[in-house]
Design a protein around this nucleic acid. Structure first.
Lengths: 118, 118
DNA sequence: ATAGTCACTTTCCTAAAGGTAACGAATAGC
DNA sequence: GCTATTCGTTACCTTTAGGAAAGTGACTAT
C-alpha cells in the first residue's frame, strides 16, 4: 500500500475541503439510513421512516429530516388526508449521495467478512 | 425521485446492517481525512499527519489512528531513526474504503456548486 | 365524551466526541 | 547540564449528539 497518487496541491486541497463539507453534512448515526430507506422504498411518511430506521426517536428523526431538507436532499410535502400525513421524498440532487451509500454498504459487507475470518 | 428499487427483504436488511457497521466504524470528523492523506501522500509519520489534517490535536489523532489500526485499515511501524519515527500506512484492506472517499469527495464538490447557485 | 392516530415538540438528561494545555520517555546535539 | 525533536499520554473541560418520556394539536372513529 503506497499508491502515492501525487497531484497538484491546489486540487488536493480542494478535494480535502470537499471531503470535510461532505462529512459535516452527512455524518452522524442516521442520515445515511434515512436516505437508504428512501432509495429502497420510495417516498415515505414520518411514522414509516421511524419504524424502518430501527431505533430512532421522533425528536431525532425530526431534526435529521429538517437538516436533510435544508441541504436540498429531501422534500417534505403535507398530504390532505384524514389524519394529516407527511411524505418525505428524495430530490434530484440526492442522487449524488447514492454512490456514497452504495460504497458504504459494500465496505460494510466486505469488512464484516474480513473481521469474521480472524 | 421515486426509484423504489424493491428487493427481497432479507437483502435489504443485510444491507442496512452493513451500512450501520460502516457508519459506526468510519463516522466522525477525522478518519476519512486521515485515509485521504494516506492515499494522496503514501505512508506518513505522526507529525506529518497532524499537519496535513489541519486542526487535529495529538490526542485525537492518536485515538483515531488506534481505531483505524484495530479495524485493520492501517499499519503502524516504528522506525529505528535517531529521534524515533513512526510510519502509518494503508493496509490492503483499506482499498475498500477508497470508493467511499472518492464518492464523498465527488458529492462534496457537487454539493458546494449546488449550494452556491442559490 | 372518550379514545386513537399522525406528526411532531418540549423538557430533561447522559454519553460520547472533541478540544486545551501540560507533561513524559527516548534520543541527540550543543 | 540544557535544549530540541518525535510520539505520544494525562487531566480537565466544553460541546454536541442522541435518547427517554411526556405532551400538543388536529382530526376521526365509536
Amino acid at each position: 500500500m503506497a499508491a502515492t497518487c501525487e497531484q497538484d496541491p491546489a486540487r488536493v486541497a480542494e478535494r480535502m475541503l470537499a471531503l470535510k463539507d461532505a462529512i459535516e453534512l452527512l455524518s452522524g448515526k442516521w442520515k445515511f439510513c434515512i436516505l437508504l430507506n428512501l432509495y429502497n422504498l420510495g417516498p415515505m411518511r414520518f411514522k414509516d421512516l421511524q419504524e424502518t430506521s430501527l431505533g430512532i426517536t421522533p425528536k431525532v428523526l425530526s431534526k435529521e429530516l429538517q437538516e436533510l431538507e435544508d441541504n436540498l436532499l429531501i422534500t417534505r410535502t403535507v398530504n390532505a388526508t384524514k389524519p394529516v400525513t407527511v411524505s418525505y421524498a428524495l430530490t434530484p440532487h440526492a442522487v449524488e449521495t447514492q454512490p456514497v451509500i452504495e460504497a458504504l454498504v459494500e465496505f460494510g459487507l466486505k469488512h464484516r467478512r474480513k473481521i469474521k475470518q480472524l
